[in-house]
Design a protein around this nucleic acid. Structure first.
Lengths: 349, 349
DNA sequence: TGAGACGATTTGATCGTTCCATTCGACGTG
DNA sequence: CACGTCGAATGGAACGATCAAATCGTCTCA
């Protein structure tokens, strides 16, 4: 008996294919097949190999597998500088769902960040060239999405949360929520409660997503035969602007003064609530307010804010579904999918 | 001239060490050294290699490097089932900071999740055995942290956000925020504003972190020569309990009725605010309220909530610092680090 | 009975990098 | 001039998995 260690005996460190093969009395490849193509093995062999795997607590080494198969089973997600606003909290819900969904598909989520807001390709390029991730999920499509174009031009697999507003002919898959329909829900809701003067508090014209949401307000108001004149305010997505806008909107004579506010975001709605409070008005009684995002703040503030809720869990599922198609090089019939939001009715309306 | 492709010519796919070596007229190993130990090269050679790297847009293949060096440069972070409360929003801020900090250290964050809340080792085991991550960051040390013990027993490198309350003799590094000091800040603040009857709204006795925070209230009240009798309420970390607790606390005769509420979380504070509102009382004028976490909701609600703010950015930095020491197998002098929170004073106090 | 087909398993090569040992050339020294 | 030293660069092997092709035994059928 030789006292020399056999090549499959690696003394204490993690078991490898060879270790398992030795234990089960088969070759490396057979163990590999047991994991990746079990239908190729004879039932009894398969059972023996699985027993050995179980016994040794074996898991295939990711690095080795990645190297050989040229995949990492990782999906990159860029999280930008933390701005403490409701949009961020929204991302949190989405990230959770994304992690769950990718898990089902056998993937993991890799987070990365960018120093400079300037360079759109920051981070993406490096991860891509080093083959650290198989694909990306792009979320910040709010500001015209410069990443999408760049990624697309390089043939990088990615799925966007958000429509390619800029270019209609984009060839990448995307998932989005119908913001317009959400606002329509909100308008219908407050009109249903008897409001005739329904104001809009939204973002500047530059934002296409903001224009989309606003269009829901305009259209629905007209559908109901209501005027939108002197009822629209646009500005930054801040609490301060929301407050200022409400002030300005309320500063008109009685018959034309708005009695309801539909907002492009919860942040803006919170600003409206603050102004109402300052004027001694009670949201939900003296005026209706509806936000957008259904953030935690909307749920816990007093009075609780009615808000449009995006189906982020569904969005994540759809995103991962697209990723699966993309990475399996399957043809994708429809490049985009629009999901419908719901309305969480609370005390402010 | 042979028309056969040279082994370093891989026709269109990503450049490798060999490609770069060919371009620069040196060997593979020299290119590798140019990246990992540039001081070994002669300046002119180094420059030539770097030029070739730049020209070809080369980045070392992660999988190959990971395989050879037995590291992944990934840090695992488990995100549990998304519960929509303030604690989650807190995590969001932390995750952002963590991503930034790990980036500086040359690492990335890998997110994973667990199906079952039951099995503490869910997910950790698999990632560990497959060598997918080098270390973990454990955050949910609120509920007695079962992961820490398991990870420690297996010799897995990890850093905890949260003290090892259960076992004082834990041998893993951790970073925590001094909740007790935070509550003391809050008590000092409201007492400084003239409040004598300061109530505590916190969690059940089971929570050690809750007891710690409560101790800050008890001690400080006594330091100020104030009584704590009939001023304490304990229950779940929900808005509903906060509201019920406030009701009960306010339901006593005038001289003993509390005029200020210090809470173990923003969620509870939001409950208190709701009750005050329901009773026609104005937070900040008729009663002071202080929360804990400085969540987004605290900042945007009306009236805005005074809250204890955890220095999560610093926590992340410290966590990563510990990770660095751990992964470099350097001895760690002090196993734990406690950071001091600050108080964000707003309208409710 | 021998050729061919087929199922099950094995063997050798490979992915791209880093570790290890060696080689090469230049230089100072006895 | 031979020798050892030292800095700089090179070539072979290895990490642990999968791919591709070869092998072995069994079965079918002319």
């Amino acid at each position: 008996m030789s006292s020399l260690a056999r090549p499959t005996d690696n003394g204490g460190s993690a078991p490898t294919l060879a270790t398992v093969a030795d234990e089960a009395g088969v070759s490396r490849q057979t163990v590999s097949n047991a994991l990746n193509s079990p239908e190729l093995l004879r039932p009894d062999t398969l059972a023996r190999v699985q027993a050995a795997i179980e016994k040794l607590g074996y898991s295939p080494n990711r690095a080795a597998r990645n190297l050989r198969t040229r995949t990492s089973h990782l999906v990159g997600l860029r999280v930008d500088r933390a701005v403490e606003d409701s949009a961020n909290a929204l991302m949190d819900r989405f990230v959770h769902s994304l992690v769950e969904s990718t898990k089902e598909a056998g993937y993991h989520v890799l987070l990365f960040s960018a120093d400079e807001e300037e360079d759109a390709t920051e981070g993406y390029d490096e991860l891509l060239r080093s083959a650290a991730v198989d694909a990306f999920v792009v979320t910040d499509t709010y500001r015209g999405n410069p990443h999408a174009a760049w990624l697309a031009s390089r043939g990088v697999p990615f799925v966007a949360f958000g429509r390619p507003w800029e270019e209609a002919a984009a060839r990448h898959p995307w998932v989005d929520v119908d913001g317009r329909a959400g606002v329509e829900l909100a308008v219908d809701h407050v009109v249903g409660r008897g409001h005739r003067r329904v104001a809009w508090v939204g973002w500047q014209k530059g934002s296409l997503i903001g224009e989309d949401r606003r269009a829901g307000w305009v259209d629905r108001m007209h559908d109901h035969g209501l005027s939108t004149s002197r009822l629209s305010a646009r500005g930054d997505d801040t609490l301060e602007f929301g407050a200022r806008a409400a002030h300005a909107l309320l500063d008109v004579a009685e018959p034309d003064r708005p009695t309801a506010f539909v907002c492009a975001s919860d942040t803006l709605a919170m600003g409206v609530l603050r102004t109402l409070d300052g004027l001694g008005l009670r949201a939900g009684r003296d005026a209706a307010v509806v936000g957008f995002d259904d953030s935690i703040a909307a749920q816990v503030c007093t009075p609780a804010l009615t808000s449009v809720r995006q189906p982020l869990e569904e969005v994540a599922v759809e995103v991962v579904r697209y990723l699966g198609e993309l990475l399996a090089h399957r043809p994708i019939p429809e490049l985009g999918r629009v999901l419908t939001p719901t309305l969480s009715v609370r005390a402010t309306s």
